[in-house]
Design a protein around this nucleic acid. Sequence first.
DNA 1: ACGCGGTTCCAACAAAGGTTAAGGACAGCG
DNA 2: CGCTGTCCTTAACCTTTGTTGGAACCGCGT
Lengths: 243, 243
Amino acid sequence: MSGDEIPAALVKRLRAASGLSEQEIMAIHALPILVREYGAERAVVSEGQRAVECCLIVRGFCARSKTTSEGRRQILSIHIPGEIPDLMSLHLHVMDHDLRTLTPCTLGFVHHEALRLLYRRQPNLADLFWRDTLIDAAMFREWIVNVGQRPAPARLAHVMVELRERLKLIGRVEGSSFEMPLTQEQVGEALGITAVHANRVIKQLRQDGIVDLHRGRVDVLDETRLLELAGFDGRYLHQSPAL
Amino acid sequence: MSGDEIPAALVKRLRAASGLSEQEIMAIHALPILVREYGAERAVVSEGQRAVECCLIVRGFCARSKTTSEGRRQILSIHIPGEIPDLMSLHLHVMDHDLRTLTPCTLGFVHHEALRLLYRRQPNLADLFWRDTLIDAAMFREWIVNVGQRPAPARLAHVMVELRERLKLIGRVEGSSFEMPLTQEQVGEALGITAVHANRVIKQLRQDGIVDLHRGRVDVLDETRLLELAGFDGRYLHQSPAL
DNA sequence: ACGCGGTTCCAACAAAGGTTAAGGACAGCG
DNA sequence: CGCTGTCCTTAACCTTTGTTGGAACCGCGT
């Protein structure tokens, strides 16, 4: 993979969310990025650690999670190429949650210092990165609503639709099917239910002819009913640079 | 209330979380703030609105919430004097959730333009406000865990302890008792349970001699058991300017 | 004092989700 | 080709939470 392709998905995503000048794109491409390969299910940064760098996902899926004192794990978000899941560590140096890979991943690491330098020189990028962390927070708010107010089948549908919307941005939806590489255990951790119940819910959505989740891949069987079930309103993704 | 007292709680809070220079404090005090009085249960900004100003809580309690298409409401956070609950609107101009008062409130409004001017002149304050929104996001993450993974009694205990920690920062905890002006309906909306079940849980914690929640006020009966039940680890509040 | 509206509280029943335990499918590997 | 481990699947039973509907309580205004 050539040096130029590494920030490609990042640029694509930032452009969609906020707009980007030529100069800013060049500055991003000039960022010193250290690329590392990770296997599936590996810790990238963990709660309690002091971070000195941020992690750009070049290839693969990651998830952020927290574990309670009782040992129950909650997945907070799922992340795809082009995203910087731990951008928040720029100003919150000690991690309050874990970042782990779901699949084998190619990750690009950028030192906090390099990022600070970048956005001091291109002040617009500071607002833009800030905005990116605010969209992150908006997704957490919707995740709270999902886990707090929707019945389990609607929760699953909502997570699926959100993930699909974000995959669309980077051109990773093929027809009515897209990747969602979670085990049923992890689906449960994302929805705040047990793996057994996750299985029941998946099975039901399959039997109802709405969606099929199979070996890390979602097949949408009935678009209309999926959207209706999810009760999805994408405004919280703030995808138009509308301002 | 004199002009100087209005940002007092804000300064106190920012100082605790990140440290603040004399010059920065003066710049904050020079901010043009329009003060308005609100009754209880009033909308401040609503989902879908374009915000052009941010709202500093001078007196009283507010809450942020979202309502699903099915009409179920979820409270996302509770806010106290010194906080700017909609700071995110600075870069996310159309609101993705509601901000309402819980009690009668004194609110100070600052135009986005004035805030931008402030942090352009004092670049440190930009990072500081950014950091503030990141702590906001960290609280959402913990709220997800609370709603997703803890049984209802632990959820209530956790919200209580978090609120108390934040009230401590602005000197609003008197002995073993502090304000939490939510109806049982609203407690339910915060915890992702119904009002009836909220009532059951409150009753149980009272009978168990752990906490009493009564007319908008919490009395801690057994500190040790409350902390144990809440499983509270305050690191996510990022209250030390440790960096 | 009286009544009004919003809380708080409660009970009986229903539904959703958790727990435990166990068999079956499937991929990777020797 | 069979072994191994992980994941998926299901069933039976139990606990938590939701639903409905109604009674008691409280602050407030007249």
